[in-house]
């Protein structure tokens, strides 16, 4: 492969990323390194560009400028700056796992098959191997008792835990969470956050967009704050939540708490 390789440690490396929608700049020269095993949360008010940033990482949004590498491999464009062939893009995407706000499970497949679908049909794993792995992951997220259920019979929190298992089944370099609890009833938020916390303890690399401040504080190694497409603050969680350097972040935290 001719793609530029970066130091082994960076699971995700974002360089000078810019993106606009209809002339409105939503990301401006964003730089972000996510080391292997690191948990980065992205905070910011709505419209600050945080979801867009996350969605650029697996090319669900195409940035206008800049580059993104997943474990050393560039996503979206080849070295000459041409769009990647779709098959290559799919292969790079498969190295990331994404969890969506609205779960997006495939309703015609039961829980087990939601988890095995991509490993079998994208990664080419055997059915037996994929199912074994899937059952272990469902156990991990506390959903093994629902392996045969269809998504329409699950609660939001259960759906999201299945979606997490589905993403983990790809054995991704990085897990991307796009407001994973925003669509949940308040009493269901906890079970999903608990699963994500467990993953961080197990050393998974994660990038999380969230509005749950206490959770962000507990789980992160690095917190970044986006404002109008710019990262205006980045710090370890203690510093971020107790001693932020920008007035804007201090105000934001006051309002959120």
């Amino acid at each position: 492969m001719s793609e530029t390789t970066l130091p082994e440690t960076a699971a995700v490396s974002i360089r000078q990323l810019s993106k606009s929608f209809d002339g409105v700049e939503v990301l401006r020269d964003v730089n972000l390194e996510v080391a292997k095993g690191e948990v980065v949360t992205i905070l910011g008010s709505s419209g600050s560009g945080k979801s867009t940033l996350l969605r650029c990482i697996n090319w669900l949004e195409q940035p206008d400028r800049g580059s993104i590498h997943i474990a050393g491999q560039r996503i979206g464009v080849d070295d000459a700056g041409r769009p990647m062939p779709v098959k290559t893009l799919a292969r790079v995407r498969a190295r990331t796992g994404m969890v969506f706000q609205s779960f997006n499970l495939w309703p015609h497949l039961n829980v087990l098959h939601n988890v095995t679908e991509a490993p079998i049909h994208v990664l080419g794993k055997s059915k037996r191997e994929a199912e074994e792995h899937a059952r272990a992951l469902l156990e991990k997220v506390g959903m093994s008792h629902k392996a045969d259920a269809y998504p329409n019979t699950l609660s939001g929190g259960q759906k999201q835990r299945v979606a997490i298992a589905r993403a983990l089944a790809m054995q991704p370099e990085v897990m991307l969470f796009d407001e994973p609890t925003s669509a949940l009833d308040p009493e269901l938020v906890g079970e999903v956050l608990a699963v994500i916390k467990d993953l961080s303890a197990e050393g998974y690399t994660m990038v999380i967009v969230t509005h749950e401040m206490a959770f962000a504080r507990a789980v992160s190694d690095q917190v970044v704050f986006l404002e109008k497409g710019l990262i205006i603050e980045r710090a370890d969680p203690e510093t971020f939540f107790t001693n932020a350097s920008t007035e804007r972040v201090r105000k934001f935290l006051e309002r959120e708490s």
């Binding site: 995407r93 498969a94 779960f103 495939w106 679908e117």
Partner: peptide, 25 residues
């Protein structure tokens, strides 16, 4: 559209996405 995005995020290409996820539904 969210289901399509999920399929893309999981590395599906168009043909398989169509056959396995879109058409059956």
């Amino acid at each position: 559209p969210g289901q399509i995005e999920a399929a893309k995020a999981h590395g599906f290409t168009k043909g398989k996405m169509f056959l396995r996820l879109i058409l059956p539904q």
